[in-house]
Design a protein around this nucleic acid. Structure first.
Lengths: 142, 142, 142, 142
DNA sequence: GTGGTCTAGACCACA
DNA sequence: GTGGTCTAGACCACC
């Protein structure tokens, strides 16, 4: 399995947080199963072209959250996946961020339906990329 | 009109950003109309019990976003929305922020159409508030 | 490469603006090229014997102008000029600044064609410096 | 003679300074001659829709510079017009401001000849407005 | 090491 | 009264 982690340098979200989010959500969704070995920190750092300390911090946060365990000398492994639910708190945060974007768009003079259409477009392009990636992965593993 | 701005000290979002968001949303909703004077920096700072420099920074961001104009010695005023232009750079920034939200939503396990519907809902509630506000203004001025 | 920035304390122009002007002119002339790292805020502040916040403000203005990008923890870098877009708002601001100069020149008694010629001269000298710089860079990299 | 003073609210130059510049240059050019009465401060303030204190400050600066004299109860009068020359200092300031604009334009991606053409355009539009105003003045005085 | 945010308090320029 | 600038110094987050 190739690495699905994508970091965006321009984002406000710190790099280590992007890694934490993506790994923890992948675990929650079952894309990574219990007992599976995560990529070595240095390899991951090399692949993402970031500082190894940054990956170390991400793994450390994940371990503190109880999601993974590092065994010195052999690697880092996924713990028993606790089931996650879409909780109200996360939805609320998302809604607030959406409100902020809506206000910004309206202030820029974009009308309501254009704004919604634009968002729909971003969602679609996101889905398309994901599917493309999945196909590539299938082909790679064949 | 009382002051509607509410800041939460414990939040991850910096104080000046909370002010920026709330004022720009208020402008987008029409709660503050063009030409209206914003509270004086020092007064607002005193009311929110924060440093005047923090308010100054928020106002400065709003000015650079083209939403307000400061006239030294007389105050800070909301710009005419007609003066605002939709330029490519701003659209791109908006698109990036949308992408970030989409990724977050998908990571949370929300499917694509639910996400788009949710956004559409936020836009609609935004518009409804604006229209309600307009009606009240009409009634007040009658 | 030594530090070329020179600030004059007695000037009417605020210090942070002097820094903004000098850096943005240096970028326009190609004296600093895309991807290059600017001096760290605190180091520059120490060298110019001013407060780090003043440098921070200058860098912040440059970032909002789209000329540089700051990456927390690693530094501040000059953007790729190709990423910059010519939008209507910026053109309008430029036009206003030109109008201000024209009025000033006319008030000083300079006639219209002399004024235009003078401006043309400034543009040419600007371009010449850029080209000279490019040639030096070519020779250096040979 | 109508009032030729034009103030621009959006300018960085303070209003009182704009008045000082325009009156002093008008005196230098002989558009206002010695002994002539300047408009009353309150009338000028009303016409320009600004605070009377601002006009008072401008007149006060002009008096301190020895260009005008206020006689309480009768008005403000132009002193003997000292001849002014276009001095090097002013030209240098103008050149610096031009350089700043050139850098900004180049940074925005505008090429050299477009930039010069744009400036030429602003000069022309300035001249046209002046001539139009002169014609109106002629018609008014007929 | 880097930048980001905030405070406290000062002085100035402008209307 | 208004906003604009600058300093000194603190604490935090990130790489």
């Amino acid at each position: 399995m190739a690495l699905w982690i994508q970091i965006s340098a321009g984002s406000n979200e710190p790099i280590y947080m992007q890694i934490v989010s993506q790994i923890s959500e992948a675990i929650a969704k079952g894309e990574i199963s219990a007992g599976q070995k995560l990529p070595a920190m240095r390899k991951l750092a090399a692949e993402l072209v970031i500082n190894p300390n940054t990956v170390a911090r991400a793994y450390s946060e994940l371990e503190q959250a109880g999601l993974i365990t590092t065994k010195t000398g052999s690697g880092t492994f996924v713990n028993d996946p606790k089931l996650r639910t879409i909780d109200a708190a996360n939805i609320n945060i998302l809604a607030e961020r959406m409100d902020s974007i809506v206000a910004r768009g309206i202030n820029l003079g974009i009308n309501a339906s254009d704004l919604a259409a634009m968002f729909r477009g971003r969602v679609d392009s996101f889905i398309n990329k994901s599917q493309k990636r999945e196909k590539e992965n299938e082909r790679d593993s064949t």
